[in-house]
Amino acid sequence: MKKWTVFCVIAALLFLVIAAASFRDDVFSTYVPVRDAMQRAGEHVQVMGALDKATIAYERGGGYTFTVRDGEENEMRVYKEGIKPMNFEHADNVVLVGSYNRDRGLFVADKVLTKCPSRYAKGK
């Protein structure tokens, strides 16, 4: 294969990937604190917060909501479609990927990652 053919294939591919990605808003997400996530409404972000276990509730139309807090008294209500991940109630911190919806006053998460203390860490 000639070098310029390889170069052309790579260039064409990069161009197409960038073009395809520009149609979506869930390509990259910046890691931000809870307050920034609410300020940057509509932007796809990644945010970690402490889970308030008493606020977890299923919605009538499907999905569930809960509240997360940061260390500075900022709190944010979160909505996620579907069923809670298995060890959700056990998690102290959760990482959310999604964007804040100002009209609904909710952070709509498309991914929830739970960070659980292991049984072992507790004993230490």
Binding site: A21, D25, F28, S29
Partner: peptide, 9 residues
């Protein structure tokens, strides 16, 4: 600044 690639990427 930490940026993650999401499933969209």
């Amino acid at each position: 600044q930490q940026i993650a690639a999401d499933s969209g990427f």
